[in-house]
Amino acid sequence: MNRTLERLAPFAFGGIALSLWQGGVWVLGVPSYVLPSPIDIAKAYLDDYAILNQALLSTLTVTLAALLAATLIGVALAVAMAASRLFRAAIQPWAVILQVTPIVAIAPLIIIWVNQPFIALVVCATIVAFFPILSNTAAGLAATPPELLDLFRLNGATRWQILFLLSLPSALPNFLTGLRISGTLALVGAVVAEFVAGSGGFASGLAYRIIEASYRLEIPRMFAALFLLGISGIVIYTALGLLESLLLRKRNAA
């Protein structure tokens, strides 16, 4: 009973908020170029769903490609950092610098350097997304139980056996936490990169449709694109959460 209520709570809250929004716009007579009502937004979406869905697909493709790249790079760097203190010392500050540099500042450069636009977008989104995977996986690898390491050594385990049979499985929960954060960051990164690329004339993705709509003062269409973005974020976050409980089910249950 309580669980069902908990599941329904976000939908109920969303429904109430949308109704208040709709009611407020009606009662106060706010013009739709200032604040469109939810119904205006839905209409704008239905008028233009082919183009908006196309844009969504393009943004999601960049997001998923970036998440994949971030996973490969993040895990590989974390493993290398766990294996060699020298490598860790050399890489760690640069990873942090890359993490704190605002992507809007370097996106124009990347878009100039990488002249294939799709790849440029993926590179930008990867830079935004890889750090949580790197730092969480590295923390997980470092926390491999020392007694188990001893047990492996006592039985003559090779480095690779320690990595694949012990360290990586031990770090799996941390990796999945990082992946979940990186998933939404990849979406943010993709959209920011599209904004930069879009203002340079590269027409693709939801961000470009948002810019376009704002230039033309098609505010309901702009909101429709924003809604798609928000829903995508929730779907990505939830899907990665499901993946997490699926992969950890074995060790958490009997």
Binding site: E147, L165, L166
Partner: peptide
């Protein structure tokens, strides 16, 4: 070698944990 804590692999069942030294 037996440690103070059981130090089992949480993702492996009892048989697989016992198998570990042989597997290595």
């Amino acid at each position: 070698f037996v440690f103070q804590d059981a130090t089992l692999l949480p993702w492996a069942d009892a048989a697989d944990n016992v198998y570990l030294p042989l597997r290595l």
